[in-house]
């Protein structure tokens, strides 16, 4: 049963209530397993103590990789591998390498970032994640507690006191 978790979760009807509840949990040092929302709720990340995403740093690195691939690739092809004279221009015609270098920078950055995004999130074609509640993608805002880390009754009383409209227990 190591793969299964017993969780307690509460559903809130409004993101304002959710933000208040998460703030209280933070003040009281109650360990939230995760928060699920139908859309990105602003102001949630600092309350949950989530550090800033580093995806953009990864994107920069992928982009640089694209820049180098394109520029060095064209340089190698036109100066070493198969030098051809086009219109009397120099083999190493830097200005005319710029468009392709730019395009590959963008291409590498976006593909790299998107692939990284799905990998680090554990999402992808065919992935089946446990469903906590079907209405989380509709209009409910959910705070979930792992009963292995947070005492079940204290989690429930927390959810009740912060105005959760529904409280459920579930094994996922």
């Amino acid at each position: 049963m190591a793969d299964y978790k017993d969780i307690v979760y509460g559903l809130y009807d409004d993101e304002e209530d959710l933000l208040k509840a998460v703030k209280i949990a933070g003040d009281k040092h109650i360990d939230i397993m995760d928060v699920y929302t139908p859309f990105p709720v602003h102001g949630l990340d600092p309350l949950l103590g989530l550090s800033e995403s580093r995806l953009h740093i990864a994107g920069f690195i992928y982009g640089m990789l694209g820049t180098l691939t394109a520029f060095l690739g064209m340089t190698w092809i036109f100066t070493k591998d198969w030098p051809i004279i086009f219109g009397g221009k120099p083999h190493w015609a830097v200005p005319s390498f710029i468009p392709i270098t730019f395009e590959l920078t963008v291409l590498f950055a976006s593909i790299g970032m998107v692939v990284t995004f799905y990998l680090v999130n554990g999402l992808g074609p065919g992935v089946v994640n446990p469903t906590i509640d079907l209405r989380i993608t509709d209009d409910k805002f959910c705070i979930a507690f792992d009963t292995a880390e947070t005492d079940k009754s204290s989690a429930e009383s927390f959810l009740r006191s912060t105005g959760a409209s529904e409280i459920h227990a579930k094994t996922i």
Binding site: D34, Y36, V41, G122, L123, G126, I132, T137, C142
Partner: peptide, 8 residues
Amino acid sequence: FGWTGSAK
């Protein structure tokens, strides 16, 4: 892709 809606 198995989207959950997790805050992260």
